[in-house]
Write a protein that binds this DNA or RNA. Structure first.
Lengths: 155, 155
DNA sequence: TTTATAATTTAGTTTGGACTAAAAAAGTAA
DNA sequence: TTACTTTTTTAGTCCAAACTAAATTATAAA
C-alpha cells in the first residue's frame, strides 16, 4: 500500500502538529501547508480510508499506529537528506528544506541511510571533521583544495 | 518561463533521439517513454507553444535553440546526479537512474554543481581515490572504517 | 437561550497529464 | 491508381489535487 506524495505531506504535518499539541486541527494543517481548508478535508478523508489517521468530522485528528510509523519514516528521510544538503553540500537552509521536501517521497530508507553514512564517513577523516565547511566551500567556489591531507598522507 | 517536469522529460528524450538520429519521431518518443502515442502529441503541441521544438503535424521533430539549451541543462543535472548516486553513494544503476530522473526537475544547476564538486573533492584525497567504493560500502554496511588515513594523518 | 463568529465540510469547478477509441494522413505493394 | 498497413492526430474520458462559494456545525458572548 503506497500513498501519494501529497498525502505523505499531509501525514508529515499531522505528525508534527501531534508532537507539539498531541493532536492536529484541520485549520492548523491548512495554515502550515498553505492550502485551502477544503483541500485538507478531502485529504483527511483519504488518509482515514487508508487507516493512517483517526478522523471524525469536526474533531481533532490523531495518527493511528500505522500512520505514525509511515510519518516517522518520512520525517527520518527528510531530516537526514536536509542535513546532508545543508551541512555537507553547503546548500542554504531554505533550499535544503525545499529539496528534502521533495526527495523524501521517492528516496528509500536504504538510500537515506547511505546519505547518513556518507556524512559520517567524510567527517570521520580528522582533516575534514575540523573544517569541512570552509574547505569544501572553497573547493566548490574556485577549485582550490586547502586541505593539507593530500601532501601529508602517504599514498 | 518554466515548464512542467513532464514536459522536461519529453524535451530530454527528444534531445537524446536528436543526438542519435538528427531528429525525433513521435512514435520513438512514445516507445522510449513508455507512454501512449496520443499523449506524445499533446506534449509536442505544448512544447511547440513554448517554442522549444519545431513541430509540424506528421513531420519529424527538431529542437529550437532555446529547447536545446534547456534540454542540455536537464541532461547535465541528470548525468551528474546519477553519477554521484552510483559512484559515490553506491546506489545501484537502475535506482540511481530512477532517482536522477526525478531530481533533475527541481535541483538547480548550482546544487548539481555542488554534487560534482563533492565527488571531486572526496576523490582528491589519495586514500579515497584508490578504494572509495569498497571503503564506503564497508562503512555503510557495518560501520567499519578500513581507511588508514585516520591514524596516519596528523591532526 | 439566542445569536454572532469561527471552524469545518460539501458541492461543484479547474487543470495537467495520462488514457482509449476512432479518424485521418502517409507509406507501400498489387 | 487502389487498397492495405502503419503512423500520427483528434476527440472525449478519467483521475488526483488543488480551488471557490455556499452550507453546516461548533463555540462563545449577550
Amino acid at each position: 500500500m503506497d500513498i501519494s506524495a501529497s498525502l505523505e505531506n499531509y501525514l508529515e504535518v499531522i505528525a508534527k502538529l501531534s508532537d507539539e499539541d498531541g493532536y492536529a486541527l484541520s485549520n492548523d494543517i491548512a495554515d502550515k501547508m498553505e492550502v485551502k481548508r477544503s483541500s485538507v478535508t478531502v485529504a483527511l478523508r483519504n488518509l482515514a480510508e487508508y487507516d493512517l489517521i483517526v478522523y471524525k468530522k469536526y474533531k481533532p485528528i490523531t495518527l493511528t499506529e500505522k500512520g505514525r510509523e509511515i510519518a516517522n519514516q518520512i520525517i527520518y528521510k527528510h531530516q537526514n537528506i536536509k542535513a546532508f544538503l545543508k551541512d555537507l553540500l553547503g546548500v542554504k537552509e531554505e533550499k535544503a528544506e525545499e529539496i528534502a521536501c521533495k526527495m523524501e517521497h521517492f528516496i528509500g530508507k536504504d538510500v537515506a541511510d547511505r546519505f547518513v553514512a556518507l556524512s559520517k564517513y567524510i567527517k570521520s577523516c580528522p582533516k575534514n571533521e575540523q573544517m569541512w565547511r570552509e574547505g569544501f566551500e572553497t573547493f566548490y567556489r574556485d577549485g582550490t583544495d586547502i586541505r593539507t591531507c593530500n601532501s601529508k598522507c602517504e599514498k
